[in-house]
Write a protein that binds this DNA or RNA. Structure first.
Length: 292
DNA sequence: TGCCAGGCTTCAC
DNA sequence: GTGAAGCATGGC
């Protein structure tokens, strides 16, 4: 077990920020604990204020430091919220323990294709079911768990099998992109070497991936933290907090991107972190108690 | 029952 | 190019 003191790092905030669907709370332990599955690894980690206990070996620790992006100064990012933007100030303070995880691109592609028109609890269910059905069964320190299925493993699923997993109209998207991954039309290796704009062009060329899903893949899977996904929650925030009469003339299709340009381009290079702050703050505020 | 959910594709105009 | 309809499934 490895003990570390880390600032601007809060497991529960990250778990509730909607970027990761394989963080499960561990009950009956001291502090906030979570079990995390990533790239075929399992980690139990506990938090008491600024103190963290990572249940892993020394040689595995660099992987998790990278995964949690612990070398980036999120205090500096949270403090960079514009003074006149009182809403963002509140959101950044409230969610200052959020970090942008470095998750596997393939897992993010499938996960965020699934995410469309689903609630976060239902996304978690689908990801877990896909992993149990097609992923490798592994064990670590006496715990068995299922890795997220590789392109090869997931491509063994027929369209009918995917439909039986309650994926609805997303099943054909997943089936299609698995075939693309096997054929080489989707090249995950070259995707990882693209910059943000190249990756957006590339990803939106695939069936079932639009702008919002591509932005989520860029932000959470490729660590292009300038990406600013605009979903229904963000749209609601933008209209309520940042709308100006001059926007009346903007076509609806480009309205939200325009508002983001006007109010968030000053955070060039890390706007996606600001996006996470307001997303988390909005969802927490609207639930008042627990995040579903 | 009707509406919405971390949207996307298709199809009129 | 823009906007609306249709899409699966489940929860409130």
């Amino acid at each position: 077990m490895i003990i570390r003191t880390i600032d601007f790092f809060d497991l529960k905030q990250i778990a509730d920020s909607g970027q990761c669907f394989r963080m499960a709370p561990l009950i009956g332990q001291e502090g906030d604990g979570f079990r995390i599955i990533s790239r075929g690894r399992l980690l139990d980690v506990f938090q008491q204020k600024r103190t963290f206990s990572f249940h892993c070996s020394e040689e595995d620790m660099p992987y998790w430091e990278e995964y949690f992006d612990l070398k980036t100064d999120y205090g500096k990012i949270a403090a960079s919220a514009a003074l006149e933007d009182t809403y963002l100030q509140k959101a950044a303070l409230f969610g200052s323990g959020i970090r942008i995880l470095r998750q596997e691109p393939w897992e993010m592609i499938i996960t965020f294709i699934i995410s469309q028109q689903k609630t976060i609890p239902k996304i978690k269910e689908s990801v877990e079911l896909l992993s149990r059905t097609y992923g490798k069964k592994l064990s670590c320190a006496g715990h068995t768990f299922y890795a997220f299925p590789s392109p090869e493993e997931l491509s063994s699923a027929s369209l009918d099998e995917l439909l039986s997993l309650k994926l609805g109209y997303r099943a054909k998207y997943i089936y299609h992109i698995c075939q693309d991954a096997i054929s080489g039309r989707l090249d995950l290796h070259s995707l990882s070497s693209m910059d943000y704009f190249q990756a957006m062009d590339y990803l939106t060329g695939f069936y079932g991936i639009g702008r919002k899903v591509a932005d989520c893949i860029c932000l959470f899977g490729l660590h292009h933290i300038n990406a600013f996904p605009i979903d229904t929650w963000i749209q609601k925030i933008l209209l309520r907090e940042y709308y100006q009469p001059l926007y009346e003339a903007i076509p609806k299709k480009h309205l939200y991107q325009k508002i983001v340009r006007d109010h968030f381009s000053c955070y060039e290079g890390f706007a996606g972190v600001m996006q996470q702050y307001i997303f988390y703050y909005e969802r927490y505020s609207s639930s008042h108690h627990s995040l579903l």
